[in-house]
Each structure stands twice: as structure tokens, then as C-alpha cells.
């Protein structure tokens, strides 16, 4: 019995080795062209970047950007819905080729993954009901702020907020947004475009911008060392910005053209 078990283990180990060897040597861009499929991590809980339609399929600016990249590469697109918390592990463990998930750049993240040039604007801020008296980070004292764990908002707010501010960290954006809408937190830290979408909902208690934390545009993330892929993605983003393709998507999802500084 034990020998059977041992040989099973060996077999599993062997498969493991083969797969590691494959993924370690191949150029990821070639790999994508060869399999004819681009696998992209997108949000599904972060409108207007990514949310779900009535058939529960992801839709939004990030999803359309992913579709544009796949189309330009001449391959099919496979979308993998992720949360803010698990998108980087997905990339690290090569479950996806790219993360296009309204992801901001910071030094912690740059240690573990690579970033493209920016493809979408994102202003981080603190938002709350119109009667909450908050105008700066210092005013957060004694207030409860909801934020998505591991997002740039989380990292920035953790630095800015005074000691006695209560930061409630939720697993994903959908839980954070739900926590605000059901009144579990007074304020939330998120992106301006996302807040605008939430404000459209009936029970948003007149969600308004309280103060802006940071301009933190969105980048496409790639696995560390996928240089060819990253170069290609950058080329395509620049092409999309000059051709007006990304502006078109921006009009569709954000009701505005992309800001000029993004195109520099």
C-alpha cells in the first residue's frame, strides 16, 4: 500500500516539474498567441470598471479594454472575475496573463508584479452621505470608514487616518459598497467614478465627495519578468489612446473623455 502511495506522490511531483518547466521557459506573449487565448482578471463588483449584466457576465470599462487588447492581439478573450484582494495572487500564480482591474500602482505592488502605463483615470477619495461633516483626513476621528482590503485606498487611508478613526476592511468591493448602502459604515474610501455610480442608487443617502486622497490612475498588471508581453500591452494602450478607441470606451462608461494627462 505504501509503495503505491509513494509512486503516486512521485507521479504528482513529476507532473508538477513538467508544468513548472513549461511556464518558466516560455515567453508569455508567445504562449498567449500559441494558445490563441488571452486570460484577463477583471473586476465584477466595481462599476463602472466592471460589474455584472443581467446574465451575470462582467461588463464595464476594464472588460472592454481587455476585449480591445485581445482583439488587437488576434486572440480570444477569457475573463476571470477577481476581487481587489485576490487579483495579485492570481497573477503571481499565473492563473491569468493580465490584470485589468482598475489597479493602482504602489511600491509594495511593484515589488511583486510589473505595471504597464496608465489606461484609465482614478481619483481616490473619501465619500459619505451629504450630512456627514468631513472635509479632511483629520475629521475622520471617531468615524467609521469602509474600504476594500488590500486596495490602494486601504493602504493610503491606513497611513492618513487618525488613530481613533475606525477603518473597516472588507473582502471585496461588493461587500464594501453593500456595507455603505446598508448603513454599516458612515463613509467609504473608493474611486470618484465608482462613487458616482453608487450615488445613482436609491439608498445612497446622497453620497458626496468629502476629500480626495490621491490621483491614482489604473494600470495593467503583468507577471514579473514578462517583458515582451508588457511592451506589447504598452504599445496597444498608446495606440488605443491616440486612435481614440479608449476615449470611446471612456464616453460609454464614464460619460467623459479621458483626461489629457493620461495621454501624455
Amino acid at each position: 500500500m505504501m509503495s503505491v502511495f509513494k509512486s503516486c506522490l512521485k507521479f504528482v511531483g513529476l507532473i508538477g516539474l513538467c508544468i513548472t518547466a513549461l511556464s518558466a521557459n516560455a515567453n508569455q506573449l508567445d504562449e498567449i498567441t500559441k494558445r490563441g487565448m488571452l486570460v484577463v482578471a477583471v473586476p465584477q463588483d466595481f462599476p463602472p470598471f466592471g460589474s455584472v449584466g443581467s446574465d451575470l457576465q462582467p461588463v464595464g470599462y476594464d472588460v472592454d479594454t481587455a476585449a480591445y487588447l485581445a482583439e488587437s492581439l488576434g486572440v480570444k478573450l477569457e475573463l476571470v472575475p477577481v476581487t481587489s484582494a485576490n487579483r495579485i495572487p492570481y497573477l503571481q500564480t499565473r492563473k491569468v496573463d493580465l490584470v485589468i482591474s482598475s489597479m493602482g500602482k504602489n511600491p509594495e505592488r511593484e515589488r511583486v508584479i510589473d505595471f504597464s502605463r496608465a489606461y484609465a483615470p482614478f481619483f481616490l477619495g473619501v465619500f459619505g452621505s451629504s450630512d456627514a461633516a468631513v472635509a479632511s483626513a483629520a475629521d475622520l476621528a471617531g468615524k467609521t470608514v469602509g474600504v476594500t482590503r488590500g486596495s490602494v485606498e486601504d493602504l493610503e487611508l491606513s497611513k492618513l487616518a487618525p488613530e481613533d478613526a475606525v477603518i473597516r476592511r472588507f473582502e471585496d468591493n461588493s461587500t464594501t459598497i453593500s456595507a455603505y448602502l446598508s448603513g454599516q459604515v458612515e463613509l467609504i474610501a473608493t474611486g470618484n467614478l465608482v462613487a458616482a455610480k453608487i450615488a445613482e442608487k436609491g439608498n445612497s443617502r446622497g453620497l458626496k465627495s468629502k476629500f480626495i486622497i490621491k490621483n491614482s490612475p489604473c494600470y495593467v498588471g503583468t507577471h514579473k519578468g514578462d517583458t515582451e508581453l508588457l511592451t506589447k500591452v504598452n504599445e496597444l494602450i498608446v495606440a488605443g489612446l491616440t486612435s481614440g478607441k479608449l476615449d470611446e470606451l471612456s464616453m460609454k462608461w464614464f460619460n467623459a473623455e479621458l483626461p489629457a494627462e493620461l495621454k501624455l
Binding site: 469602509g146 488590500g150 493602504l155
Partner: peptide, 21 residues
């Protein structure tokens, strides 16, 4: 999942800071 700061929250929090899942 609902932001209670217990043991798994600690795990998730650390994971979101250093990505050593």
C-alpha cells in the same frame, strides 16, 4: 468576510500587504 477582525482577517490583511499568501 464582514470585516470582523479575527484570525482569518489577520491572515487576509497580511496577505494584502506582503502578498505572501
Amino acid at each position: 468576510q464582514i470585516s470582523v477582525e479575527e484570525l482569518t482577517f489577520a491572515a487576509n490583511f497580511i496577505q494584502s500587504r506582503n502578498f505572501l499568501s
